[in-house]
């Protein structure tokens, strides 16, 4: 089943004197259960592509269809609701709301979705357990390590069961060990919850763990390789 369809999408920035084609004619699709990584040199358009898929930004040309929604047809506020309902985000850093505890952060989107309290609590416990932080319910982000913070972010993104997770360089700020742990968790959740992950990275070790590696260069897809290894 296709979760994301990208048809000949371009994104051009005119901010500076020169015109920058950040994404240049990309056609791609992602299936349910994908564990895909987007790689490429700095400036190749990874972040831009992820932002387009997540409905954070509009393509200059082309069409993106996510979970049956044509993103170009959604009004700004509908786009926000769309993200709340269908997309889980994990950013490189500053993912969490600093004044809330780990548990409250995980609950946050379910809260926006008006889950009943009982279900919310149960799911939060389950997710914090999955990411190995069941003893850190009440910790504030500032009391957690960078790796732990990213794990809370993954838990928050997954908790409301979105269509897929977008993660822009989720391990970039982590040491090797924390990065490995985070990937283990993502892989496990991919397996157990059939959660689709689309993430970008610079990190070769991360690349090796993916089952699909998409390489961008100058905003173009230069390779799209499926490996069938299971770690």
């Amino acid at each position: 089943m296709k979760v994301v369809e990208i048809n000949d999408v371009c994104k051009t920035y005119h901010d500076t004197e020169v015109e920058v084609k950040a994404v240049d004619g990309v056609t791609l699709s992602f299936e349910k259960g994908d564990f895909a990584v987007i790689v490429g040199p700095s400036g190749s358009g990874k972040t831009t592509l992820l932002n387009l898929i997540g409905g954070l930004d509009h393509p200059t040309a082309g069409e993106i269809i996510v979970a049956g929604h044509r993103l170009s047809e959604l009004k700004p506020s509908q786009l926000i609701d769309f993200r709340m309902e269908h997309v889980g985000f994990v950013f490189q850093s500053y993912n969490l709301i600093p004044v809330l505890t780990a548990a409250e952060n995980v609950e946050f989107i379910m809260n926006l979705q008006r889950w009943p309290k009982e279900k919310r609590k149960a799911r939060t416990d389950e997710m914090l357990q999955s990411v190995g932080l069941s003893d850190r319910h009440k910790s504030r982000p500032s009391q957690l390590s960078g790796g732990q913070q990213q794990r809370v972010a993954v838990a928050r993104a997954l908790a409301p069961r979105p269509e897929f997770i977008l993660a822009d360089e989720p391990t970039a700020n982590l040491d090797t060990k924390s990065a490995e742990t985070l990937l283990d968790i993502m892989e496990k959740l991919n397996r157990e919850e059939q959660m689709t992950f689309i993430f970008s990275t610079h990190d070769v070790r991360v690349m090796k763990r993916a089952r699909r590696v998409i390489t961008l260069e100058d905003g173009k897809v230069v390779s799209d390789i499926r490996t069938n290894h299971n770690s």
Binding site: G54, I80, D81, F89, Y94, F108, L112, A157
Partner: peptide, 14 residues
């Protein structure tokens, strides 16, 4: 600003 960006990204209406 960053936090606001993050909140609207994950689905909080402005």
């Amino acid at each position: 600003r960053r936090e606001f960006g993050m909140l609207v990204s994950i689905g909080m209406q402005k």
